[in-house]
């Protein structure tokens, strides 16, 4: 049984169709990477799946208990400390102050945040630390499904790698399923069990490829070869990097 089932999703902004007839399923404990060129509607789709945007057409069936989400920007409350930010979903869930504190600290340990940083405000933290806080916040309420919306695009290469490892590790430990939007094929191949490619204009899912091996156990050479193979020989991925962003609406 799948944790998330999107069927016939369609959406339009001010009459301009951005998504049409999108079907996608994510299994329990499975990480699916959703790739596609910029502007193809990936972000809108994940916003619809996470119940932030109501779709015009189609149905979202979620059988997981609760979800968390990591955005492209950290989206932390500037007036709250790292600890309060991590505890925010717990506060929304109506969990008591003491319990909230303990669980926020547990989530912080999980993403290797230092205890001294927990009392700092987001403005006092570096970009990487802020994204760590955002990941801890997504995991604080022990979700069994997590949405990632291009979470590491703004980070430098080394940091990006560390964050990807963090996601792989916590997905295995907490055994949550995930939908991971990215336009970086290397990231997709590193993290996911399966890659879904979106059609360039949001007209459904163009195709899917299961990635061999288990996330976290694939070597760098294997990842590189897989990506090269996809780009050179697999027609499904041809349009992923071939888009002129100047022509996008």
């Amino acid at each position: 049984m799948s944790a998330l089932q999107l069927s016939g999703i369609g959406h339009a902004y001010l009459g301009r169709t951005v998504l049409d007839r999108v079907d996608l399923a994510v299994g329990e404990g499975e990480i699916v990477a959703l790739v596609g060129p910029s502007g193809c509607g990936k972000s809108t789709l994940i916003h619809i799946a996470a119940d932030i945007v109501k779709p015009l057409r189609g149905r979202v069936a979620a059988s997981y208990a609760k979800h968390g989400m990591v955005f492209q920007e950290p989206r932390l409350m500037p007036w709250a400390t790292a600890r309060e930010n991590i505890a925010y979903p717990l506060r929304l869930a109506g969990i008591g102050r003491r319990e909230r504190r303990a669980r926020a600290e547990e989530a912080a340990r999980h993403v290797s945040l230092e205890a001294t940083d927990l009392d700092k405000f987001p403005l006092e933290l570096s970009g990487g630390m802020r994204q760590r806080v955002a990941i801890a916040r997504a995991l604080a309420n022990r979700p069994d499904f997590v949405y990632f919306d291009e979470p590491f695009t703004a980070l430098d290469v080394a940091l990006k790698r560390r964050m990807q490892d963090l996601v792989i590790k916590s997905a295995q430990e907490a055994s949550f399923g995930a939908l991971f939007v990215t336009h970086d094929l290397f990231e997709a191949v590193r993290i996911a069990h399966r890659i879904a490619v979106m059609e360039a204009h949001g007209q459904g899912i163009a195709g899917e490829r299961a990635v061999a091996g288990v996330p976290g156990q694939r070597g760098d050479r294997e990842i590189f070869e897989t990506v090269t193979h996809y780009l050179a020989e697999d027609s499904l991925f041809r349009h992923v990097n071939e888009i002129d962003e100047r022509r996008l609406p």
Binding site: H47, I52, G68, Y88, P89
Partner: peptide, 11 residues
Amino acid sequence: GLDDMARAFGA
């Protein structure tokens, strides 16, 4: 952005 974040966490 914060509003969307809160919505994602069920607010």
